[in-house]
């Protein structure tokens, strides 16, 4: 069996790499073509890299140095090579080396993108992991109770609220909770601050609690509905009847037999959600002005800063792919029948 698991992982990793390359190509293509469609030339793009008083000659030199005259595929190839081998950039002020993994330099800030991403990752990571823990606990608990007491007041209330939760935009709930809890009641931190967990765990959590809750509310609504549907189905299975026939107490029947059986589809969605969130909870981070990957991506888009956008996109795609791989492997842990295949 281990041999089959290993070939399985290798196959999946291979597929993941191919997928990442395709995602990066598409993103590169879009962000390469977009400015051009809007009328930008290699010179106007290069002018962002030189001082305000540059002559057309220096701009052209710059554009040539950055390879802006080269065809699309060559530029893409160079970008790809940078990731694995690093790259050298010439900004007129001399050659600068960007070590692997090199995702290029920001057009705006002249900072290499990779270290920037690594700076912001902890913020996004904290946000995603905290929120995910909350919504998993909340969503699954509410969904399970709803399913067990189907048709009760609790069930109807929970499902009504969750319907609202699924449909309300995060920007709205985010701003609403900010204005109530931070500005109004002063219970929680005002957006825009982030403290590293290593520096002060208390402060870290205090700063993040509001975005966590906001994000978790949104997701738990979806998870509650999903859990409820899954539980209603599982609780009708024959093996539940068997568990009861053994004389098992109802809470154990629900949790050990019911929930365990209903968990698989939730796992799939969870993997996807966490993967996506690690790529930057774009709206939440903006709403709470958290300096994470999402906010970084927005800066990139607003400023036509191709390397930034490429960096975040590829990192997000990477997380999604990895999360999916992990979910697939977890499947085999959760469902022994998968192992046999």
């Amino acid at each position: 069996m281990p041999a089959t698991v290993i070939t399985y992982i290798i196959r999946r990793l291979f597929a993941a790499v191919v997928l990442l390359i395709i995602v990066s190509m598409v993103t590169f293509g879009i962000f390469f073509l977009m400015p051009r469609l809007l009328g930008a030339t290699p010179e106007t793009l290069a002018s962002r890299y030189v001082g305000r008083a540059a002559t057309p000659d220096t701009i052209r030199d710059m554009a040539r140095n950055l390879g802006f005259y080269d065809p699309l595929y060559e530029q893409y190839w160079r970008w790809l090579k940078g990731i694995f081998a690093g790259a050298d950039y010439n900004y007129g002020s001399g050659i600068e080396h960007c070590p692997a993994p090199c995702l290029g330099y920001s057009f705006r800030t002249y900072q290499p993108v990779w270290p920037d991403l690594m700076d912001r990752l902890p913020v996004t990571l904290s946000l995603a992991v905290g929120a995910a823990t909350l919504w998993l606990l909340g969503g699954i608990t509410i969904g399970t109770i709803s399913a067990v007491y189907r048709g009760s007041v609790f069930d109807r209330l929970a499902m009504g609220v969750s319907l609202a939760g699924v449909s309300l935009p995060i920007f709205f709930t985010g701003l609403l909770s900010l204005s109530i809890f931070s500005y109004g009641l002063g219970w929680t931190a005002v957006g825009g601050s982030y403290t590293d967990i290593a520096d002060d765990p208390g402060q870290w959590a205090y700063n993040l609690i509001l975005p966590w809750i906001t994000l978790a509310l949104l997701f738990s609504a979806q998870y509650a509905r999903l859990t409820r549907a899954g539980m209603l189905e599982t609780m009708n299975e024959d093996f539940i009847r068997t568990a009861r026939a053994k004389g098992l107490a109802e809470p154990a029947v629900v949790v050990r037999h019911g929930l365990r059986g209903a968990l698989t589809p939730i796992l799939t969605i969870f993997g996807l959600d966490v993967g996506l969130l690690l790529g930057g909870a774009v709206l939440t981070e903006s709403a709470f002005s958290l300096p994470g990957l999402g906010k970084y991506a927005i800066e990139g888009i607003v400023n036509y800063d191709l390397p930034k956008v490429m960096g975040v996109t590829i990192l997000a795609a990477f997380f999604v792919v990895i999360a999916n791989l992990v979910v697939d492997l977890l499947y085999a842990v959760v469902d022994p029948r998968v192992r046999a295949k």
Partner: peptide
Amino acid sequence: FQDPLSAMHPF
């Protein structure tokens, strides 16, 4: 029960 496959928990 009748169907021993569905009557046992698969996990």
